[in-house]
Amino acid sequence: MSAYTLFYDHACPMCRHEMLRLKRLDKLNIFTLSNISAPDFELTTAPASMEKMQALLHIRRDDGLVLIGVEAIATLYRAIGKGWWTGPLIWPATRGLASWIYARIARHRYGISVLLGFNPACRDGVCKL
């Protein structure tokens, strides 16, 4: 079984919630989270430029293969045994639309986080008043 490094924006409340949720579901401990918004994030270890990683989720498999966007999401869910619902993300007939929608969500993730009720002042269960 492959292991994966997930390059995600921890400063985005919705992104942080989803990545931490995926990590909790990772019973085989095959995911490593890499916070691209951390001050000490080392770009030299990254699979792409900061601009590209901020635009779409990037994951790197332990064999070096890099997956991006909806393909990355589908791969992660398949890896934890929950891939059954990700079919529409990668079916040839719907992949283009799924990628287009995901890119728009990723571009507006901070605003969408607020609309969905994710508090940007909360991190790891602690909220600033």
Rank of each mutant, 00 (worst) to 15 (best):
L28M: 15
N29T: 12
N29H: 15
N29P: 14
I30H: 13
F31L: 14
T32N: 05
T32H: 10
T32K: 06
S34E: 11
S34N: 13
N35D: 15
I36E: 00
I36V: 09
S37T: 08
A38H: 08
A38F: 08
A38K: 07
A38R: 04
A38C: 08
P39K: 04
D40V: 07
D40Q: 15
E42F: 10
E42P: 07
E42K: 13
L43Q: 12
L43E: 12
T44C: 10
T45F: 12
T45M: 12
P47C: 05
P47S: 07
A48G: 13
S49Y: 10
S49Q: 03
S49C: 03
S49A: 03
M50G: 13
M50H: 12
E51P: 05
E51F: 04
E51W: 06
E51R: 11
K52N: 15
Q54I: 00
L56H: 14
L56Q: 13
L57C: 06
H58R: 08
H58S: 04
I59Q: 01
I59T: 01
R60K: 15
R61K: 15
R61P: 04
D63I: 08
D63T: 09
G64R: 10
G64E: 09
G64L: 14
L65Q: 15
L65R: 15
V66I: 12
L67K: 15
L67R: 14
I68F: 06
G69R: 03
G69M: 10
V70A: 06
V70P: 01
V70G: 00
E71R: 05
A72E: 04
A72M: 03
A72T: 00
I73L: 09
I73S: 03
A74I: 03
T75Q: 05
T75F: 07
L76H: 00
L76G: 00
Y77S: 02
Y77L: 06
Y77F: 14
Y77V: 01
Y77Q: 07
R78I: 02
R78D: 14
I80K: 02
I80G: 01
G81F: 07
G81W: 05
K82M: 11
K82L: 13
G83R: 01
W84P: 09
W84G: 11
W84I: 12
T86H: 07
G87H: 09
G87T: 07
P88M: 05
P88Q: 02
P88F: 11
L89Y: 00
L89D: 00
L89F: 02
I90S: 03
P92V: 07
P92Y: 09
A93R: 15
A93H: 13
T94C: 13
R95C: 11
R95M: 11
R95E: 10
G96S: 14
G96N: 11
L97K: 13
S99T: 12
S99P: 06
S99Q: 12
S99W: 04
W100K: 12
I101M: 15
I101D: 10
I101L: 15
I101R: 09
Y102P: 00
Y102K: 02
A103C: 04
A103N: 08
A103Q: 10
R104V: 05
R104Q: 12
I105S: 05
A106S: 14
